[in-house]
Amino acid sequence: MIDTALSANDIWFLVQGAGWTLLITAIAIVAGTLLGILFGVARATLPGWSTLPLGFLLDIFRSVPLLIQLVLANSFIPILGIRATPFAVSCLVLALYTSAYCAEIVRGGVLSVPLTTRRAARSLGLTWWQDMKEIVYPMALRVMLPSWIGLTLGVMKDTALVGWIGVIELLKSSQILITRMANEPLFILCIAGLIYFLISFPISRLGARLEQRWRDND
């Protein structure tokens, strides 16, 4: 066995941190993807001028560093008189941040479906909605999935930043252990890294499997 001062309790502390990382990632990805689909479809299908303000807003979420967004939101939301825990602020900011990237992915995906294919669908009598569901969604999904997997993995790693506003997620919990046990920083970081990997790996494998299945049909 490895000779270490790390107790089972300490490992449990890390696992709890990982739990928060997972929870924030899941909320940010689910809410961000739903919003992103809404924004992305609007950007792809409505006339350009009408979604200009939305596009501008999403540009801001994409270009301002996430850490600055977190700290600003954490300071300003209480000033607006809304009580929010750091956890809630983290989920909100990460969800908006995710939605901004997801909107671009969705917009690109929808626009990747040739107009002629969509016209063929409509000419068969399919409604706009049926065209979206039966043709655009499955065709765009194949284009969007790799980027979306990348986004998910990226957001999962970006959750490390919410430690700055006081959420004890995986990275923060390992830092706390490191300050307590100053002689084992590398070992603790290895464990934290391993946990990040264990979370990411199934997601990227799932994506690769889907892509392989679709490629077989082409």
Binding site: R119, G125, I135, P138, M139
Partner: peptide
Amino acid sequence: LNKLRRNIGIVFQQWNAFPH
């Protein structure tokens, strides 16, 4: 229009198969 189009089949120059 969706109802009208049931009566009118149209085939285009590009094949426009639904690839999925």
